[in-house]
Amino acid sequence: MMYFGRGFGGCLGYGSPFGGIGGILMGVVCVLLIAAMIVFVVRALKKAEHSRPSTGAMEALRLRYAKGEITEEEYLRIKKTLEQ
């Protein structure tokens, strides 16, 4: 007769169809769920980061500033205008 009142309790504890390995299985399942959640969050953050609009105008502005075609004041003024 199966006895569920001792050990880890529940269907994965002592007396379960899984035997003594039930606790290990439950631990593995928990670790896998936590890892899947971490992967999901990291991918969502990366996707959100890449979805920011990076217009060609901002890239052109950065290049003009890097080449020295415009001053810092002009760069900041134009950047502020483009971000609006």
Rank of each mutant, 00 (worst) to 15 (best):
K79C: 04
A48Y: 11
E73D: 08
P17C: 08
E83H: 08
R52T: 05
Y75N: 08
Y75V: 03
M58L: 07
G68R: 00
V29K: 09
P17Y: 12
G10M: 06
R77V: 11
C11Y: 11
G68P: 00
Y65W: 07
V42N: 14
E72V: 04
A57K: 13
K80W: 07
G20I: 03
V28M: 11
H50F: 09
G23L: 09
L12H: 04
E73F: 04
L25Y: 01
G23P: 07
E83N: 10
L76V: 05
F18N: 13
V31W: 09
I21C: 01
T71P: 07
M1H: 08
T81V: 07
E74M: 08
P53C: 05
E74F: 02
E73A: 11
K79N: 06
Y14F: 03
M2P: 14
F40R: 15
C11M: 11
K46A: 12
S16W: 09
G56I: 11
E72D: 06
I38Y: 03
I21T: 07
R52K: 08
E74V: 00
K67T: 05
E72M: 06
E72N: 06
R6I: 13
M26P: 05
L32P: 09
M26A: 10
S16Y: 07
Y65D: 01
F4C: 03
L33K: 08
F8P: 06
P17M: 07
L63C: 02
F8V: 05
E73H: 12
R52P: 05
G7H: 10
E49D: 15
T81L: 04
F4V: 06
E83R: 11
G9M: 05
Q84G: 12
Y75K: 00
H50R: 15
A60E: 15
R52H: 06
Y3D: 14
K47Q: 15
T55C: 03
E72P: 02
E74D: 09
V29P: 03
K47E: 15
E72I: 02
S54R: 12
R64F: 02
I70M: 07
I78Q: 12
